[in-house]
Write a protein that binds this DNA or RNA. Structure first.
Lengths: 328, 328
DNA sequence: TCCCGTTATGTAATCGATTACATTCACTAT
DNA sequence: ATAGTGAATGTAATCGATTACATAACGGGA
């Protein structure tokens, strides 16, 4: 038994002849070492859990890919679980961390209270990415949402838009920051910030379509001349609905998205949007996490990733298309 | 120690007073049981691994959701890993099964040789879903691809199309079956099967666009009057490219997709496609897998899931839109 | 008073792999 | 011939939780 273990762990103190004999027998009986026994003794599992709110999240899947690359490079396996934005499910999967089935955890959109996350972070390696929880004391990697939204809004205003609607999911911290950026731009240009132009969505296509209908049937108020959606999916819903209402997105009304998922290039009209470097975001977050795992003493802090605005046909009416003006 | 274990496992033979005292201390010191030790003793982990070729696969993410539901219902956790269609990665993750980190594995698009999969299936609980490997002796859950493609082709022919192109990924077993169905329909109607109209793709949008360009610049041959793409994503590429070439999909040329992902409802024109019940597919596959785990003796076989054709604007030129003719 | 049964808790073996330490063996130097 | 050396292998403790079994404590009946 001991010798077998030595063979499998490349211990040099095994005679060449014994080694090959062992390997042969292993092959014959189809022996596979039990990972449980192993990690019980030498505790790291070299496995990381990434929590996603849903499995088909276009934006986060890019982040996940970045995280995966960084993990593999350092010899870690990565596994995913899906929370469906339910606290209870999230706690279930967090158990994998506290029970040592994984060495660390990467949150992409936690629903847990800040305090709970802080407590977890104090005891175990954990990092937040993309969407963060206000007040949770975990390292965080993401873009400057306030600034990005500010830039989009300013761009729309400078292009001549005066009635700019915004669709957000107010539960998200990032969405609240974006709203702030939007308001900063409006204030700067002396344009009134009408609450009627703030509409809620949940990042689904349907909710975008629904928001669009509300915006274009406001009583006692002119319809918007631009719609800034908090995600490309909602923007897709907006565009779809505009066609159904006989509006021409990109000409009658400008549309701006957020995330730059693949869909943005395929929609008709193609969608202007904010590009976040998903790969880089995931990579940096994973690096931060591995740092914490391997040197428990370390106390790194938040990381900010750059973003850029992408101009496509959905804002054709006010400017150039498909240039990649790098901004931050 | 023993008493603590009893408390955590709800053993009735613990005095109420001791129980509450134990719980209090557990809370104080922040004790969390180590899952390794536990599963080492009572061996099932009640955890299932689902292998996906990529994290942002629109179609499979629906399947994954179905699998997840079925697993939760029976008290199993589910975790995902991504193979990027690389054999080596796939083998890495399969180790989680052989090393008993999970109780079973669900393949959605394995790249491994049939023999290897058969060997695995003989020793451990494993099931294939959606895409199968020809000759691999694992239970499989999927649709009747040959029949579905036959129905689509027949529909196009009956609508008046005579030059029907098909885009497939010939590496997939399912694609080869679909090609057969396509050929059966052509033969039945006495329409020649021209190899020039068979174009390769890899299920990416780009490959669809590329295929489209080839199809509409065939030397000495009329361009097709219908394009049947092996996936909605490729169909999206086809449609995008048609616009760029000044063609009107759904009027000049019919377009049919496969999978019925959400995108199909959003494209302009909306996309006619084959709907596979993703949820049901995932659910049935997971049920099959759990069956195998819990009653090792059982030897269930393949399961066939129904499909239906969805008619939308991209075949507007030849028929009704958005009806749901259930077929199998 | 003694014995028995019941209930609650403690003891120790177990799961499978790892690894410090002990042992064996062959061989060399004295 | 004997002690000493080093390489290869064997032995047994260990990781943390579970659980069959042993023990302790207590009350009640003969």
């Amino acid at each position: 038994m001991a010798t077998v273990s030595r063979v499998l762990n490349d211990d040099p103190a095994v005679a060449e002849e014994t080694r090959s004999r062992v390997l042969q027998v292993i092959d014959q009986v189809g022996y596979a070492p039990n990972a449980l026994g192993r990690s019980l003794r030498k505790n790291p599992t070299r496995r990381i859990l990434v929590l996603l709110p849903s499995i088909s999240h276009q934006f986060l899947s890019g982040v996940a890919r970045g995280a995966e690359q960084a993990a593999w490079r350092r010899g870690y396996q990565i596994i995913f679980s899906v929370t469906h934005s339910k606290e209870e499910l999230e706690r279930q999967y967090i158990k994998m961390l506290t029970q040592r089935s994984v060495d660390g955890i990467l949150f992409t959109a936690s629903q847990l209270p800040a305090q709970e996350l802080s407590g977890l972070g104090a005891r175990y390696p954990a990092v937040m990415c993309s969407e963060c929880v206000e007040g949770a004391k975990l390292p965080y990697v993401g873009i400057d949402n306030e600034q990005a939204a500010y830039e989009v809004t300013r761009y729309l205003i400078e292009g001549g838009c005066r009635r700019i609607a915004i669709i957000t999911r107010p539960e998200d911290y990032s969405s609240r920051l974006r709203l702030k950026g939007y308001q900063r731009a409006l204030a700067e240009k002396g344009i009134p910030d009408l609450p009627e132009y703030h509409v809620k969505g949940d990042h689904s296509i349907t909710s975008g379509a629904y928001a669009c209908r509300r915006l274009f049937s406001l009583p006692n108020l002119q319809p918007p001349d631009a719609v800034f959606a908090g995600s490309d999916l909602m923007a897709a819903g907006v565009i779809r609905r505009m066609y159904e209402m006989g509006l021409r997105p990109g000409e009658d009304v400008m549309v701006f998205g957020f995330d730059n998922i693949e869909l943005a290039r395929i929609l008709t009209p193609t969608l202007s949007t904010v590009s976040q470097s998903k790969l880089q975001m995931g990579r940096r977050a994973m690096e931060l996490l591995l740092e914490r795992i391997e040197t428990p003493a370390c106390t790194q802090r938040d990381v900010r990733i750059g973003h850029k605005l992408i101009f496509r046909e959905s804002t054709r009416g006010i400017g150039v298309q498909e240039s990649g003006r790098e901004i931050t």
